[in-house]
């Protein structure tokens, strides 16, 4: 009788478990993670885009093409925020899925990593779907957009990791998640350079923006999509995202172990 299980296999088991749950609610997530960004692209990229003259601020690109590689990252982060809050609380509290898994040879650490892997998988699939539609709408300028997919996924998990860590500490659902969505996710989406260059913001706000993973992801995604990147800047963004992912994962693993210890 094996007493332990290899981590890749354990992660696959957790992902499978999430998939079983997800299959029942896929319709909701197609709406929120694919259709919603596409509609934003139509409304803002094309609709509002008619009012915007290509200029220095948009890198001399039509607004639609300026927006697309950033919107894929912003939307990935939003989906990640959702997948890291209610489903995690639910798996601990109502459905007790995690307790069920942790009663098998799968360890608490592996459950945490599995949850993160699930978010990564979810994000990359919906981001890919979004990019295909964006491509059909003529919103992508080069094949570099494929790299935007990688950047979007990385940014999303970097943000998801600490959120999962936090969700694992919540006992009763109160106002915590509303506050995360409205005071962190929403302003981050609005002010991290997705819709307009950060330079439009007052100078004192900008350092705050530099602390958001979304800004680093957006810069990186535009750089690879427009092939305007320079090694040093790109490395800086990458380092920020990886560091956030590492710290977040560490906290998530710690909190899962605490919560699942009986």
């Amino acid at each position: 009788m094996p007493t332990a299980i290899t981590t890749p296999r354990a992660i696959r088991l957790v992902v499978e478990g999430q998939w079983t749950w997800y299959r029942r609610s896929w319709r909701a997530s197609v709406v929120s993670s694919v259709l919603q960004p596409v509609l934003y692209l139509l409304a803002l990229g094309i609709g509002v885009g008619t009012q915007i003259r290509p200029g220095g601020a948009t890198g001399d690109l039509p607004y639609l093409q300026y927006l697309a590689p950033a919107l894929v990252v912003a939307s990935a982060v939003q989906t990640a925020a959702f997948e890291s809050t209610f489903p995690v609380l639910s798996a601990f509290k109502w459905q007790r899925t995690y307790h069920g898994i942790a009663a098998t040879p799968v360890s608490a650490t592996q459950v945490a990593l599995g949850q993160l892997a699930w978010v990564a998988l979810r994000i990359s699939v919906s981001a890919a779907a979004f990019l295909v539609v964006a491509g059909l709408l003529g919103a992508l300028t080069s094949i570099g957009a494929v790299l935007s997919l990688v950047v979007a996924t990385l940014t999303a998990v970097a943000f998801a990791a600490p959120v999962i860590a936090y969700s694992a500490t919540i006992e009763t659902e109160g106002q915590q998640f509303s506050v995360i969505f409205r005071f962190i996710v929403m302003p981050m989406t609005m002010f991290s350079g997705t819709f307009f260059p950060v330079e439009q913001l007052p100078e004192w706000v900008r350092p705050l923006v530099w602390l958001t993973p979304l800004w680093h992801g957006t810069e990186l995604s535009r750089a690879v999509a427009f092939s305007t990147w320079e090694a040093l800047g790109a490395l800086g963004h990458l380092a920020f995202l990886l560091a956030m992912l590492a710290v977040g994962t560490h906290l998530a693993v710690r909190n899962f172990n605490r919560r699942l210890a009986i």
């Binding site: 509002v48 009012q51 915007i52 200029g55 601020a57 948009t58 607004y63 106002q175 509303s178 506050v179 409205r182 005071f183 929403m186 302003p187 609005m190 002010f191 819709f195 307009f196 439009q200 913001l201």
Partner: peptide, 21 residues
């Protein structure tokens, strides 16, 4: 927090786009 959501939209779209539009 429900009060801030439209405000963020207002500042973001209004002022961010302001210069662009």
């Amino acid at each position: 927090s429900g009060f801030f959501e439209p405000l963020f939209f207002l500042f973001g779209l209004g002022y961010g786009f302001g210069a662009l539009i």
